[in-house]
Amino acid sequence: MEVILASVFSAIIISITVFSMMKVFIYAFRKNDISLRKCIILSTSSIVIGLLVASVLPFGFQKIMDFINYRKPF
């Protein structure tokens, strides 16, 4: 249960971050600081990286919980 809850909250934080980055890329494109191609590449890469991180997080959280809850046999 803890792993699911931590993964959901982390995925929400990651999606907010990616959405904010996309807004910055669009703003930079409108100000002519970056080209359209660069805006598309940066937006796509941030979405893909965000999805990869959000999909790997449950496994990482499960490993951390297993490490915390591990009890050494006597």
Rank of each mutant, 00 (worst) to 15 (best):
I64V: 15
I26V: 13
V24I: 15
I26L: 11
V8A: 09
D33C: 12
F59W: 07
M21Q: 15
N69T: 04
I49T: 13
V18D: 04
N32F: 06
Y27H: 10
I64H: 02
L52E: 08
N32D: 14
F74Q: 10
R71M: 02
L5E: 11
L52T: 07
I49E: 03
F29I: 05
I40G: 09
I12D: 01
N69Q: 10
S35E: 11
M22H: 13
S43M: 10
V53C: 15
L36I: 14
I68C: 01
A28Q: 15
I13C: 15
V18I: 13
Y27A: 01
G60N: 01
K63F: 11
A54T: 04
I12Y: 06
L57K: 02
L42T: 10
Y27I: 09
K23N: 11
K23A: 12
N69E: 02
S46I: 14
I16Q: 09
I41P: 02
F67W: 14
C39H: 05
I12M: 09
L36R: 13
P73S: 08
T44H: 06
V56N: 10
L51P: 04
A54C: 08
R71S: 12
Q62E: 10
A28V: 06
V24A: 13
V48L: 14
M65C: 00
N32P: 00
S45W: 03
Y70E: 02
A6W: 02
Y27G: 09
F61L: 10
T44P: 05
K23V: 04
G60Q: 01
T17C: 12
K31Y: 07
F25W: 07
I14E: 05
R30K: 15
F9Q: 12
R30T: 05
K63E: 14
G60F: 00
R30S: 09
F74G: 11
I4Q: 03
S7F: 01
L5H: 08
S45C: 14
S35F: 03
K31S: 12
M21R: 13
P58V: 06
F67P: 03
S10H: 03
I47T: 15
A11I: 05
I64E: 04
I68W: 00
A54Y: 07
I34W: 05
S20P: 04
S10M: 13
M65I: 06
I68Q: 00
A28P: 07
S15F: 10
L36N: 10
G50I: 06
M65R: 03
L5D: 14
L36Y: 13
T17A: 11
V56C: 04
I47K: 05
V8K: 08
I26E: 15
G60A: 02
L57V: 09
S10G: 03
V3P: 00
I13H: 06
I4L: 13
E2P: 05
D66P: 00
I13G: 10
F29P: 01
K23S: 10
K31T: 09
S15L: 04
L57E: 01
T44E: 09
M1F: 04
A28M: 14
V18N: 06
V48E: 05
F25S: 09
R37S: 13
S45A: 09
S55L: 14
M21E: 11
F67H: 05
S7E: 01
K72Y: 07
S45D: 03
F74H: 14
A54H: 08
F74K: 12
V48P: 00
F9T: 01
D33G: 14
S20N: 09
T44M: 07
A6N: 09
L42N: 12
S20G: 14
S43R: 08
